[in-house]
Design a protein around this nucleic acid. Structure first.
Lengths: 353, 353
DNA sequence: TCACTAGACGTAAACGTTTTCTTTTTTTAT
DNA sequence: ATAAAAAAAGAAAACGTTTACGTCTAGTGA
């Protein structure tokens, strides 16, 4: 429980309510009421107070305010990494939090349970209205449930946690992987590889189950290579997938488990002159803007990342209002490009440009 | 000065120092001292206190602590958008802030001065140790200087502000653009286009000056198209650059002003079957991981984005320590791929894989 | 003229810490 | 055994707000 002692720096006195009150020759109560519009104040004194505020360039000390009122108007968000997927989610959170008059703060945990624990404590001790968490590998929900005060609601996003009471919003990962395999099948591919993250988190596991189940249903041959969900991991898993040691298995099509691994995997293919969509079909989880401008464009399983953020906030709001919202599974969409082997629709526009 | 009244929600009582003190049968002072290791406490009572803390799962209320100590141990960061460049900077900030025992919080302003003002007030009223700002178009430094208390140091990053006293850390944008033009020149290109963001911010303006100066020095022909620094803006600027209405000017090489515009610009080229590195040479500001896996790989002017974050924090630290640090200009690096017309070095490895 | 009411504002007690100043307890030296 | 010294722990005053009460003034109706 020992908390790191921040290397604090004394701060000089700043303008307080009292200073304003003195300058305007009223009580601090009046100033407070002017600030918050919380009771009638004669126009004349209101003016005086406003002027004093402006002249001293007073800023309400929200720390004191929060201490008094017991609520911060702040939502805490714990993401795993500042990757494009999570930043999209952030945009959604931002959008949803705004009309509620709240603000939010972010911190990243880097798939590290110890760090997530630490940051969770920061959020708790800053008395957040609520906390949105993308749970890392190793997440101990018993611990979290025991340590988080009953009055701070928690919402999990992107990743569920098995055997936890906490409500979550996730994507239909199972379904996404299933669809991808089905799509490969429609192309006639029989040997399917899967480059997957090795962390024990629900999104990867759901994708794995969806993949495996569909492989089985369609009687296909498959091989899964797991590695770190990073650029390097994608490269390495790709290498193993195409290793000469697999006499029996050279994949015709590969599903990639997330946006980071995709980059590494494409790097691998490029280095070994395997042409995407020709020598090997590729579908990846996670859409990003650049997926459209490469050749061929990527076929991806697109999550509603922004909506995930919005939904997480909505769920949080419901919990704060005393309701018990259910888990939400967001739709995913198979967005067809050329990387899966589909005909490359080259847009031959011939109007002036 | 009217501040949005957050839709607060009453929070039930939580465990306080007093509760712990009662349970451990000591005074709250002792508990506080145990928590902070700030005076001798007999092993025996320390144990009792610890146990009480654990049993009640007490969390220090940092809000109260901050009110008392007057410092939050928090650094506020105002970015323009959650784009890959800024998230890299964030990683740098994170890295630099950690050993100081601080944490940081982020908010994004969306190139909107009103919103930046609002969020600045949030940061001030939460009594941040310091504030790191990527100044938006319209940034009024007189206003900021008048409104920020003397005890909250401000550091600008990514963008300087003309006529402001505030210290800044930026990239050598002028030099980067200059180098790019020079590189085009070495390839023999004479007609150079520039797809640039239209916001009045120092980074764009410096890039523009560097571009123009080098064009002049080398006696080249150029054309600059400015638009929103977004995907759409990049597309539009590209369209105008290659408009049939420019009888006299069809660019052989194009410099692109940032990572978002690049995507739009590449989209434009693809749609009109202009091959990168063949029909038109391209260099862009801002490196991103995917730049390496496309064909041809992008030649980019790479900023030290992470270092920018680290540096910003260091400068902040110096200001807090009472020094007056100077502006810093970070080196940029022209990272050669194939998009500029340079020979594409295809890595033909022939070892087992 | 006198209660009475309503409007306008002031007083003071919290909120949960940190920290200075005391007080109490323990240890040590005689 | 006792006084002095050292160690350990308690009491209470802040920090800057919000807010439940209380007070004061002026206006009303009889």
């Amino acid at each position: 429980m020992a908390q790191a002692k921040p290397q604090n720096v004394k701060v000089k006195k700043s303008v307080t309510l009292r200073d304003v009150a003195k300058k305007a020759d009223v009580s601090i109560a009046t100033v407070s009421h002017v600030l918050n519009n919380t009771r009638e104040v004669r126009e004349q004194t209101r003016k005086r107070v406003q002027q004093a505020i402006d002249e001293l360039s007073y800023h309400r000390n929200d720390i004191a305010r929060e201490l008094k009122t017991g609520s911060s108007g702040l939502v805490g968000v714990l993401i795993v990494d500042y990757n494009p997927f999570y930043t999209d989610v952030l945009r959604g959170i931002e959008e949803a939090v705004e009309p509620l008059g709240w603000k939010f703060v972010v911190a990243s945990t880097g798939e590290n349970w110890e760090k997530q624990k630490e940051l969770l404590h920061v959020m708790i001790s800053r008395r957040m209205q609520g906390i949105l968490i993308a749970a890392v590998d190793g997440f101990d929900s018993k611990y979290v449930e025991s340590v988080v005060p009953a009055d701070i609601p928690i919402v999990l996003f992107d990743r569920r946690v098995a055997g936890s009471q906490m409500v979550s919003v996730t994507s239909m990962n199972f379904e996404g992987a299933r669809q991808a395999v089905e799509h490969f099948y429609q192309h006639g591919y029989k040997k399917i590889g899967f480059v997957l993250g090795k962390d024990l988190i629900s999104s990867f596991q759901d994708r794995k189950s969806g993949f495996e189940q569909e492989i089985k249903r369609l009687n296909l041959i498959s091989r899964i290579e797991e590695d770190y969900p990073s650029i390097e991991g994608g490269y390495e898993a790709g290498r193993r997938l195409f290793s000469k040691l697999n006499y029996d298995f050279i994949p015709e099509a590969v599903l990639v488990g997330n946006n980071m691994m995709l980059i590494g995997f494409l790097e691998f293919l490029r280095e070994h002159q395997l042409r995407v969509g020709v020598d090997v079909a590729v579908i990846s989880f996670d859409y990003q803007a650049w997926c459209d401008v490469i050749t061929p464009p990527m076929t991806v399983i697109r999550q509603s990342s922004k909506k995930m953020g919005v939904t997480a906030v909505n769920i949080l709001k419901q919990k704060i209002d005393g309701n018990s919202p259910d888990d939400v599974r967001l739709q995913v969409e198979l967005s067809i490009g050329g990387s899966c082997g589909c005909m490359q629709k080259i847009n031959r526009s011939n109007h002036l440009f």
